[in-house]
Simulated assay, not measured.
Amino acid sequence: MAKAGSRPGATAKKKGPTKGTGGHGRKALEGRGNTPKAEDRVYHKAHKMKRAAENRKATNTLRSRAPRLGGKRASDELVTGRNSVLESLQTKIPSKTLFVMSRIEVDDRVREILTEANKQNLPILEIGRLELDRLTDHAVHQGVALQIPPYKYPDAGNLVLDTMERWHDQQLEVPPLFVALDGITDPRNLGAIIRSVSAFSGNGVIIPERRSAAMTASAWKTSSGAAARIPVAKATNLTRVIQQAKEAGMFVVGLDGGGDIDLPDLELASEPLMIVVGSEGKGLSRLVTENCDQIVSIPISSAMESLNASMAVGIALYEVSRRRSS
Rank of each mutant, 00 (worst) to 15 (best):
M1D: 14
A269S: 15
I242M: 12
E271K: 14
E105G: 05
D260G: 12
A213C: 09
I261L: 14
R323E: 13
L177R: 11
D76G: 04
L114E: 14
L273Q: 09
A269V: 04
K119P: 07
A145R: 09
S224F: 05
R111S: 11
I261G: 12
I104T: 03
R63S: 03
I315Q: 07
I298W: 11
T59A: 11
P187C: 02
L89N: 12
A303Q: 14
L273E: 11
M215H: 10
M274K: 08
E165Q: 12
G258L: 09
Y43L: 03
E280H: 02
R134G: 06
V252M: 07
A192N: 08
T21Q: 01
K152F: 04
P187T: 00
G225M: 03
G281M: 02
S95W: 03
S325K: 15
S301R: 07
V106G: 02
F178G: 05
A180W: 11
D107Y: 05
I295W: 09
A4K: 12
L130T: 10
T21V: 00
I242N: 07
A248K: 08
L307C: 04
D162F: 01
A233V: 00
K15H: 11
D76N: 10
P36Q: 03
H24C: 01
Q294I: 00
A309L: 02
K14E: 13
N60E: 15
L62Y: 08
L317M: 14
D108G: 00
G70D: 15
M304S: 12
G259I: 01
G33V: 00
G254M: 00
L161E: 13
P94T: 00
L181H: 10
